[in-house]
Write a protein that binds this DNA or RNA. Structure first.
Lengths: 241, 241
DNA sequence: ATGCCAAGTTGATCAAGGTCAACAACCAAG
DNA sequence: CTTGGTTGTTGACCTTGATCAACTTGGCAT
């Protein structure tokens, strides 16, 4: 069950600071941020932070755990649009209409820092660095989505899977985890949905890359045997579809 | 050739105001915006406002004409990520890294209003309404991209084409043009790239929808014969791929 | 243990859409 | 008026990845 704890989140102490906050805030500015982020929330595996249609009030920084966001269309179809790991910020889809447009669901027991958005806007007015940072975070999401569109529109199945794994790898590395050896937090079906493929195709592609000796897969555990070659396969591979 | 004219753009007078600016700015606030947007720029068909790698300095409101943005990956592949019509704002991909990540190219002789971004941030601090609006515009882009990902990942060719046409139709309607009768500004190839399809598939799908009596296509001229049915085809159609 | 369910793998088959090619229509330039 | 280049249409064929189905494994509840 989702549970709310009023633990002083203290951004000023958080080891994710550099990922989630601007670099180079003054002491005074940092303490303003501390006062802003006043609530940490535990989300159990399978629970949602928010769902499509919920009123938008805050954005969320992942403190611990793993999330997916997914959109659903009128007919039953749904699609995973993103995965989020610690230090990443989610919920910005809600700003435009004061309503969320997707579900944000925990893939494992997780914790998020709740950032009330209107207060954030208020503080932005006083701390231009904060405003700049917010704009960058939003813009980064736009750029990321463009890359995603590129992937969905122009890459073949194997390339998508490779791009996905390399992206995960790079994000783990940025957090100080092993770049070539990690556990997937999501199912084959969720990966497939994210990549615009069926789960069988994801599974087959894993197996195939393993036969080639580029990958070792054992259930959710992935080991990249040669990231350099994988990268090359992305940029060289056929002029695509 | 691209040409710069210092014509008083006067947002306060512009008929696109409601699309491009927040509704409900005070007189005083509007005149602040007028002072911000101090340059209008003509872009000839085929020319770029900016290209990938260009330093980011401003965002652009389309005043007149039609644009596409496209990203290109290391290997030659490129993909159209968006089309923009009057009243829409482009260039926000550049904020995150102070560098543009795509090319913005005019599909016909066009005019844009140049909005220096750092000045915009400065004014946002003084005019909270402006800040709110900026955030909404950026967030709307995020939501739009999510819808695009949904389309690319979960829809079949015919559905994508229908969704594309209905989206255009709705945007024309919002601008006071006929919703069911308009001219495409882009080639079949550009549509295909945007939709993750080949130009032949776009062409065939047009022909097919025409045979069904749902569409009339003559070169670039499109007439939607029954938007209601088309909409229904989107939401009902098979549980998809 | 036992049974059940969700998650994953693998194979056989099929269809959507990509590829290749021919051709038509329509400019714009000479 | 002719020529060449761009854009669009249509057909024949082929490839990729979806679909359907059988089977395995592991976790959890009884």
């Amino acid at each position: 069950m989702t549970e709310i704890i009023k633990l002083q989140p203290a951004c000023s102490q958080c080891n994710l600071q550099e990922l989630c906050l601007p670099i180079g805030l003054s002491e005074a500015e940092l303490s303003l941020v501390d006062s802003l982020v006043d609530e940490r929330r535990k989300i159990a595996r399978g629970e949602a932070i928010f769902r499509s249609g919920d009123r938008f009030t805050a954005i969320y920084a992942v403190k611990l755990g793993f999330f997916k966001t997914e959109v659903l269309s009128e007919d039953g179809r749904h699609q995973v649009t993103s995965f989020y790991m610690p230090g990443e910020v989610l919920g910005m889809d809600g700003i435009s209409a004061e309503t969320h447009h997707c579900d944000a669901i925990a893939l494992e027991d997780s914790e998020v820092c709740l950032i009330p958005f209107h207060e954030l806007e208020t503080i932005s007015v006083k701390v231009p660095t904060m405003q700049r940072h917010l704009h960058r975070v939003m813009s980064r999401e736009i750029v990321r989505d463009q890359g995603m569109m590129m992937m969905l529109g122009a890459m073949r199945a194997e390339e998508r899977v490779i791009a996905f794994l390399l992206n995960l790898s790079q994000r783990y590395a940025a957090r100080g985890y092993a770049a070539a050896d990690f556990n997937l937090r999501m199912t084959r079906e969720e990966i497939g949905s994210y990549l615009g493929l069926k789960l069988e195709t994801v599974s087959r592609t894993f197996s195939h890359l393993q036969e080639e000796g580029l990958l070792q897969v054992e259930k959710k555990h992935i080991r990249l045997m040669d990231a350099a070659i994988l990268k090359k396969m992305l940029s060289q591979e056929g002029i695509g579809r």
